[in-house]
Design a binder for these strands. Sequence first.
DNA 1: ATAAATATTGCAATAAAACGCATACATCAA
DNA 2: TTGATGTATGCGTTTTATTGCAATATTTAT
Lengths: 247, 247
Amino acid sequence: MLQEERHKIILQQITLHHKVLSNDLCLLLNVSLDTVRRDLAELEKDGKIIKVHGGALAKTFHQPFQQPAIYAQAEKKKIAEKALKLIHDGMSILTGGGTIMLELAKIIPPDLIGTFFTVSPLVALEVAQRSSVNVILLAGQLSPNSYICTGASVVSQLSEIHADLCFLGTNALSLGDGLTEYDWETVQVKKSLIKSAKKVAVMSISEKLETNHKLQVCKINALDYLITDLDPGDKKLLTYSQTCKII
Amino acid sequence: MLQEERHKIILQQITLHHKVLSNDLCLLLNVSLDTVRRDLAELEKDGKIIKVHGGALAKTFHQPFQQPAIYAQAEKKKIAEKALKLIHDGMSILTGGGTIMLELAKIIPPDLIGTFFTVSPLVALEVAQRSSVNVILLAGQLSPNSYICTGASVVSQLSEIHADLCFLGTNALSLGDGLTEYDWETVQVKKSLIKSAKKVAVMSISEKLETNHKLQVCKINALDYLITDLDPGDKKLLTYSQTCKII
DNA sequence: ATAAATATTGCAATAAAACGCATACATCAA
DNA sequence: TTGATGTATGCGTTTTATTGCAATATTTAT
């Protein structure tokens, strides 16, 4: 049997059972333990599996559907709490995705009345679980990086929606270039989100301020609120306060 | 059992009960107390739990979205593995939601080629995380009970889709009444799912056979495959084999 | 204070991994 | 064809990791 055949079988076994024992593979493939180990070593080198004592695990073993690790969680929680104050009963809310938005989703009031539109399945599930608010998930192709729905269908659905307030996460924000992104589809979605809401609130940890990516979503003056972990009076925010309300 | 499996189970127990007793883990995992302690020590070293005298505690009580507990998981895994055999490269798959579907999502091959439509954000996230297949999530109002997208927008989007194979979970199935449900919106979605696919596969644990709810989705003869945890030759399935292919 | 439960430590048995080496096999060039 | 080169595989040995056990210490509860 060829190496590649074995590799394929091993990967099949792993996707099926989420793990394999070296000994079982030995019998299944009719090769020595050494060969199995060498195969596993190579598959691990290629990042396909996780080798452990006694066998190997699927890469997804530890994430049955675990949420993305949240970097700078303390700051993001703080931002989410500030953002929550903009939300009132009866409003229709529209949100993008990202870890900050997840923090906001986690503190949505259980008795909120209104409509909650989002392009992020993670946010939608969080909110639906916690709150009786009406959650509408906008459909589309699920982007494997950001786990938000993208594509023409999202944009077309957004064109039918008129929300009171839109919350956006941030990858980069600067006075000169405004809100920027690196992924084309994300840009299209964010542009549509902005168009579909009366007011736009951008949530950003302070370290993203004055950074840039290549693709522009909008200029600063398209944003109504800027919510950061800094004090609203912080001097880093001074220049932004010309066009946005700082929170 | 691999070390990592034990760690995973321990973490599951802790998120479920907020604490564990070393003795309970002993019995649950079939290992000595020493091993349990060493496991707990390691998990604590990794910052995952807090070890205390007699067991361990969850590190944080602020928990993210919780995956629905899966009842009869062993049977559902078995069904999912059978269902997987119906999936081939190039197909467009359409699925509903539910815990069986989640089990199927967990074993989707990483290199599957095709399109995966679903109305369940949970299934969509699982599949997108595990596989490079193109995942399309159909939009709508997120039903707070079943966590699937429902409503007119789903039905309207489904009318534009023509899939090769549709997988449906089951709440009740009987010869007389066919596939039945108790929630009106779910019925509408399932009806549309069936219409949008060339073939329909129903996945059901055997105890749901010959049970009924009040709202009919379709008759038995609308179903092409019936996948259960029973052996295809089981006598309980005999009567179904007239109209469906039993797997 | 005392008994019971739980932890810690060192140790031995076992299982698995890593390493070096010899053999088999394929590929390629002369 | 032949020989050289490189790769894949299996085997024996050494090294390391895991696990359970027993003796001892510590904590907890009464």
